[in-house]
């Protein structure tokens, strides 16, 4: 049985309509109340609405709670090393333009052990959706401070409270060369989460989405107030931004107009302290894409390769003079 998807999407009809069940596998083992569950369902919905062929879709993750994500997807998956989801995903995409690639990475993964790859993946700007599951804590290893833990977070590695200010992933990403898409959403607003990941999937380049995620086990209070009081969420609204139905907009206490082509304003919004900006901060569809470079000479036939190789070997032959 397949759900009818046309209500949500304008994709032309396919020979085979993929349904939600085509994108799922197994039972997610995250804690009850973990933001992972809603993100998983949302990604599956986006895949279905985009009618991605499951066999042409690859979800690459790192290590941590978020790292388990590909195991629950009915697509190809790659649950690799801590912090290294970006290089693997980039390698997958480089010579396979036909694949839809998702990167799932946690805050420890992306902003700490794999920070170098984050910087460069943004610069490569290969078409893929990168989801930063940011719950501000190391969960799977049981409550250590993460680079995005707020100042003075009490954790097992900083029992007296963390000493350093957190990294702001939006601010950092917006400062990187060749950045082309930065959005922020929250795991508990299904409509916005969907609209954001959908927009990201349609972006021609690397779409970086920070998902503010609750961790009921170790960071119960982190987004508690924000989730309860919608005033703390500041919706960035624009005709080119992430569009919500009027009903869904009501969940946001504050709405400000923001043009996502304006990177300076985007950086200002990224630094808002008295609330969380939600929406599309920045988008530029004209940036250079490294996956286009990677795929530029695909498809050469064996005979052509052989011929060119032979003429290359001629250059090293002792019996031939210079041409």
């Amino acid at each position: 049985m397949h759900l009818q998807t046309h209500e949500f999407c304008s994709v032309p009809s396919f020979d085979h309509d993929y349904g939600m069940e085509d994108y799922g596998k197994g039972v997610a083992r995250w804690c009850p109340g973990c933001g992972g569950h809603s993100i998983l369902t949302t990604v599956q919905r986006v895949c279905k609405d985009m009618q991605y062929e499951p066999e042409k879709t690859v979800v690459v993750s790192g290590i941590g709670c978020s790292g388990r994500f590909p195991h629950y997807m009915g697509t190809y998956g790659f649950h690799g090393l801590h912090g290294r989801a970006f290089p693997v995903a980039s390698g997958v995409k480089f010579r396979r333009p036909d694949l839809n690639v998702f990167v799932v990475t946690g805050d420890g993964d992306c902003c700490s052990i794999g920070a170098a790859h984050w910087v460069h993946a943004i610069r490569y700007n290969m078409k893929m959706v990168a989801l930063l599951f940011d719950n501000g804590i190391y969960g799977l290893t049981k409550k250590q401070t993460s680079p995005t833990s707020p100042l003075n977070t009490h954790s097992n590695t900083h029992p007296k409270g963390s000493f350093l200010p957190p990294i702001n992933p939006l601010q950092t990403t917006l400062g990187l060369a060749n950045v082309s898409f930065v959005a922020q959403t929250v795991d508990w607003n299904a409509a916005h989460l969907y609209a954001t990941i959908r927009k990201a999937a349609e972006h021609p380049g690397l779409a970086f989405v920070r998902i503010v995620q609750r961790c009921p086990a170790f960071m119960r209070d982190l987004y508690g107030d924000i989730a309860v009081d919608p005033k703390n969420l500041i919706l960035l609204s624009n005709e080119n931004g992430i569009n919500l139905k009027p009903k869904a907009r009501k969940a946001f206490g504050r709405v400000i107009e923001h043009d996502p082509s304006n990177i300076h304003k985007a950086r200002e919004h990224a630094e808002i302290h008295n609330g969380i900006p939600i929406g599309l901060l920045y988008q530029n569809t004209d940036n250079v894409r490294y996956d286009e470079y990677g795929a530029h000479n695909l498809g050469m036939g064996v005979e052509e390769k052989k011929e060119n190789l032979e003429s290359l070997l001629d250059q090293y032959s002792t019996s031939q003079s210079v041409k």
């Binding site: 790659f78 690799g80 693997v88 995903a89 980039s90 390698g91 995409k93 480089f94 694949l99």
Partner: peptide, 10 residues
């Protein structure tokens, strides 16, 4: 990592 990703993808 990049080489492994490419090889995984055939």
């Amino acid at each position: 990592g990049f080489a492994i990703g490419a090889s995984f993808a055939g």
